[in-house]
Amino acid sequence: MSKACLVDLTKCIACRACQVACKEWNGLEAEHTEFFGAPGGYQNPPALSSKTFTLIRFVEMTDSDGKLKWAFARVGCMHCQDPACASACPVGALSKTAEGAVVYDDTKCFGCRYCMMACPFDVPTFQWESPIPLIRKCTFCADRQGDDAGTTSVNDQPLSEESLARHRDSNRTPACVKACPTGTLKFGERGQLLAEARERMTAEPGKYIDHIYGEQEVGGTSWMYISDVPFDQLGFPTDLGKRSYPSYTSPVMKAIPAVVTGLGLLLSGVYWVANRKAKAGTSAQEDNNQA
């Protein structure tokens, strides 16, 4: 089963521990920014970039009583089940792993930026200032998914199998999830997390809006959200549809052999007809050839 993450936005207090943990784990530089105002949100930095893979968006809004209120949304790669970015890439630099992460191979990429155009959530970013630029985006901490437990001993005492397993699990948890102090972010199996999201929604009727964002969007994503604020007001694209993006182009790609064969036959047919006619006018043609 592939791993996923459930984001319960009602719990987010915008401490941005996830944002910081992400920077630390991925060794990302700080950004020079200026204060960024509405309508895109009040967060700083304003948007994802090659130095920011995880961002908490600050949205100021009025609630039903007309009072001002803040809503927060985590922005980052959704790790689509059938990712548009991976289907776009002409060199196969992006791919979905069995564990659920959509990962990038920086030895393959040649920098065409089609993935950036194709991503429905505008996630991949590019190192514009570098002469050897790469695509950057959240990796779902794929580099933490190995069997490394981080340590094998404590106080010179070797760890028991049980604690090793615990360490390993903890190590596999993405850095942002580990850092989250409120339980907004939860890491687990996709199916279980979906069930849990529904439980939370039935346990407190009226608290959540009736939608699990990412359950079906663009064919489903590994990161899923539940919220008390409508998703369009949080700046999530809500008109993407349930159809997976690669399914828009795959029929075209699958048709290639048939089209090539058909064209070959068609052109030969036309040639045959046209030249049968032309034979009658051979003399005219020869005149032309001499001209």
Partner: peptide, 9 residues
């Protein structure tokens, strides 16, 4: 590299 699903390819 042959990702046959990519239009750009």
């Amino acid at each position: 590299m042959w990702p046959e699903h990519s239009v750009m390819f």
